[in-house]
Design a protein around this nucleic acid. Structure first.
Lengths: 219, 219
DNA sequence: TGGCGTTTTTGCCTCACAAGCGATAACCTC
DNA sequence: GAGGTTATCGCTTGTGAGGCAAAAACGCCA
């Protein structure tokens, strides 16, 4: 049981990794995880293990990815692992153990087992869901300006994002709401930006996939 | 390890189920599955177990769903199960063991364990992917008319589908190709329909989710 | 107090694609 | 060949994404 815990830090999408002390893969970096206890579900267990690395209340979203089952993935003994995607909102800086660090996804160190694959598929899942769900809530702080949100999306998606388009898409889908607050940019002038928040902090699918919809049947 | 094996039969989406002889859940219907051996991946194992129920060559698509881990899901002993979605093209009629039958998804008998939930999530996955991938290849026979394909999609999606719209969507995405053959409808007249086939029989994502695309950068 | 630079927000336009509908094409049978 | 039947194509509409530029709302400084 493993989690790819992702957060946008310093403008880059980063993953929480810890450095192994022992063989196999000594000195390699690995995803946080652990074993399943008798009376818990995989998700409960994952949250329990993550609590050793970060404050679990800071994990805004946790979902199952694939269960990895290659007999060779662990060279010492047969081991299945269910991978999770965890997201931490930008802004919080969890205190982590001394063997644990954040690593930008585009500058990964040498990883243990099949963890590099897991990280990439976690990023793919995140990128997909950012486009057709409200998953942005799990990357964003409680309130934010659209420029800040644009930078978050750009870091997570890996390509530039237009703030004006992002605003229209998210507002039309009614994912954002105005908090009433305004914020000025740094010291130099500029129009103060309105602070938004996500209307919901639970995953919702917003795009109807736009194809092969049921007919309208108006007549 | 379990599989929701789906096929469109007699115009309805149906699932392959076998009837349990012993407790727990005696006489209830269950998804085909089995235990993982030491030297195989989950997918290999799933194919091996399915071979006892149907000819595996008839399973055109197999993908992992969720791994179920509720400690109570099996009342006798703790058991994890990785669920799969399997698809059998319409037209083939696999010979199945005597305890095994096809059941329409909208008329399910009493199911063992959490298998009803798994079936519904399998159907959701199928419906979603029919809209933004070429997954239709796994439900369709090697060649077909558009009217036949429309009926397949309608059965799988659970709502009426317009043949003309289906044609335009799939042709624009270049998922279908003309086989050159034509086929007449029954005995009464009518213009012969062109027979199509899917250009690829491997899963391909076709819809780019239409949002938050990278900018065009033409200038 | 008014201009200027900066940043945000809104309005207008275009484009792509899904979807509805009617017209046309291509057969059959009688 | 006329009429019925089925398939296919073309025209049109509607919706949402995306680009661009104008307008709004500040701070700062003369």
């Amino acid at each position: 049981m493993l989690a790819a815990v992702l957060q946008v830090r310093e403008g880059r999408l980063q993953a929480l990794l810890w450095q192994r002390a022992r063989e196999p893969f000594a000195a390699c970096w690995a995803l946080p995880g652990g074993a399943l206890a008798a009376d818990e579900t995989l998700e409960e267990s994952m949250r329990r293990h993550l609590a050793e690395k970060v404050d679990v209340r800071e994990v805004a979203h946790l979902e199952q990815l694939e269960t990895r089952s290659d007999p060779q993935r662990n060279p010492t003994r047969r081991e299945l692992a269910t991978a999770f995607l965890g997201l931490v909102p930008s802004g919080v800086d969890p205190s982590v153990p001394s063997d644990t660090r954040w690593h930008p996804l585009d500058e990964l160190p040498e990883l243990a087992y099949d963890h590099a694959e897991i990280l990439l598929s976690a990023r793919e899942r995140l990128r997909g869901k950012l486009s057709y769900t409200n998953l942005g809530f799990a990357l964003a702080p409680p309130s934010f300006t659209l420029a800040e949100l644009r930078d978050l999306y750009a870091a997570a998606l890996g390509h530039p994002v237009s703030a004006t388009n992002l605003q229209r898409v998210l507002l039309r889908r009614r994912l954002l709401e105005d908090t009433g607050e305004r914020r000025h940019y740094g010291s130099g002038g500029g129009r103060p930006a309105t602070m938004y928040r996500f209307r919901s902090t639970r995953l919702e699918v917003t795009d109807q996939f736009a194809v092969l919809r049921p007919p309208t049947m108006i007549s």
